[in-house]
Simulated assay, not measured.
Amino acid sequence: MTASHFWDNQETAQKIVGELTYLKSTLTPLRELVQVADDLEVLVEFVEDDETGESKAELIAAIEAALPQVEAVELQAMMAAPEDRCDAFVTVQAGEGGTDSSDWAEMLLRMYQRWAEQRGYKIELLEISQAEEAGIRNATIAIRGNSAYGYLRGETGNHRLIRISPFDSAGRRHTSFAAVDITPDLGDDIEIDINFEDKSTIRED
């Protein structure tokens, strides 16, 4: 990247930078976990030689502290599909339940926005339709960041909320629904191969 001609082709350069960023974000947690494993191995040796038992509590605390790192690496390993590395389009659609569902849809949208902000991802509002009384009918945002789609893809589906409705003067319990759709931003990298010799895909009337 320090070569004088590296940025001559901005599109290619950005792809290379993105690839390096992805590799760094993948390898860094692995290296940190290897270091943690080495430290735990040393603690195990201390426990074996410690007749007082004080080192055992330290070992247990260290193992518990390492669990989030292990889970993060396991999650990263599960995101093996090429599209998992892509940015994500998040669409939230209010379902049955009137104003409560519109409010629930907006709550979900804000939840995804806060999640993206906490991870340092960029957020772009692409489309939004406000409901009449409160909340939204639907909205679509783009979340741009390393493996955004991989982290979010499991959110696709119907989401339900049961609560005492703030819009019901009688204070009754309402069930609200909202549908969430997560799709990857494949950009211009997607390739579609069409085999024109395969007649099984050709319809003859």
Results as ranks from 00 to 15, higher is better:
3 A>M: 09
3 A>I: 04
5 H>E: 13
6 F>G: 04
9 N>E: 14
17 V>L: 15
20 L>P: 02
20 L>H: 10
21 T>R: 11
21 T>W: 01
22 Y>N: 10
31 R>K: 12
33 L>Q: 13
34 V>I: 13
35 Q>W: 01
35 Q>G: 13
37 A>G: 04
38 D>I: 11
43 L>P: 01
49 D>S: 11
53 G>D: 05
57 A>V: 12
59 L>F: 12
60 I>D: 15
68 P>G: 06
74 E>W: 03
81 A>P: 07
83 E>Q: 14
84 D>N: 13
85 R>M: 10
87 D>H: 15
93 Q>H: 15
98 G>F: 09
105 A>V: 06
108 L>C: 06
112 Y>A: 03
113 Q>C: 05
114 R>F: 02
119 R>V: 00
119 R>W: 00
121 Y>S: 00
128 I>Q: 08
130 Q>C: 00
130 Q>W: 00
133 E>C: 01
135 G>P: 03
137 R>F: 02
138 N>R: 14
138 N>A: 08
138 N>K: 12
140 T>P: 04
143 I>Q: 06
146 N>R: 04
146 N>M: 02
151 Y>F: 10
153 R>C: 06
154 G>T: 11
158 N>P: 00
161 L>W: 02
162 I>Y: 02
164 I>N: 08
167 F>H: 06
181 D>E: 15
188 D>N: 09
188 D>T: 09
188 D>A: 11
190 I>L: 13
194 I>Y: 01
195 N>R: 04
204 E>L: 00
204 E>H: 01
205 D>T: 00
